[in-house]
Simulated assay, not measured.
Amino acid sequence: MKCVVKFCSPVLTVYEGVKSFYKEEDETLPVNMYGKSKVAAEKFIVEKCSNYAILRSSIIYGPQTVSPVAKSLPIQWMDSVLSQGQQVEFFNDEFRCPVYVKDMVNVILSLAKTWLSDGKKVQVLLNVGGPDRVSRLQMAESVATVHGYNHNTIKSVSASSVNRGVASPSDISMDITKLTQMLSIKPISFQDGVRATFDAEAS
């Protein structure tokens, strides 16, 4: 079977939370059906396609799109609930590497330009995350810091305190060394990304 898959973004592999900063070659240990479907998609693409770029991402955040999406965006949701001044619970033991949307776009554009200019087949699997490993709690604290909200309204809780009906990995933080070396792209810090999000929406 011959096919060309330029970009499959994001293809997120969900790991069992037994370590931090997973590398692309680390074993995938999905804990739920969502994760298993992503692993299956990666396997299919690698086996069946001769030209592909698989980009593994975590939480993609940034300003609202030109055509607003119906789903609540992470930073905007945190800002909304924290602005009300009431206590809100955030998990202190689920870790991700959120990536600013413009960094994700830059990665895709860089790969596309390389593919178009060289005319060679691309076969690459990359972690595309931000440089910071942060919990939901730390994300909320950054939003509060940037917008000057009272940190006392942020309550630290364990993810095990809430039954979400499906298993969720505790740590899917990603090592992005391969990304930065291959494309010379350094994603911005989470807090700087939060500032950029609010600045973009205010302009």
Rank of each mutant, 00 (worst) to 15 (best):
Y61Q: 03
Q86E: 14
K38R: 13
K38N: 15
Q86V: 15
V88Q: 09
E47I: 00
Q64D: 06
D93Y: 04
I59H: 06
F44I: 13
G85S: 05
S72H: 04
F95I: 08
V69K: 14
Q64E: 12
F91T: 01
I75F: 10
V46R: 07
V39M: 05
S37D: 12
P63Q: 02
V66R: 10
S80R: 09
I45F: 07
N92C: 15
V69N: 12
A40G: 05
A70V: 03
S37M: 12
Q76Y: 03
I45N: 07
Q64F: 04
S58A: 11
K43V: 12
D93E: 05
E42R: 07
V88S: 03
N92V: 15
Q86M: 11
S58R: 14
A41S: 15
K71R: 15
V81E: 11
N51A: 01
M78F: 11
Q76G: 06
P63G: 01
Y52T: 04
I59Q: 12
T65G: 06
S50V: 12
I54G: 09
D79R: 07
S50N: 13
S67Y: 10
I60Q: 11
S67K: 13
S80D: 04
F95D: 02
K71S: 14
A40K: 11
N92H: 15
Q84I: 05
G62K: 05
Q87C: 02
D93A: 05
F91G: 04
F95W: 06
P68T: 02
V81L: 14
K48T: 12
S83V: 06
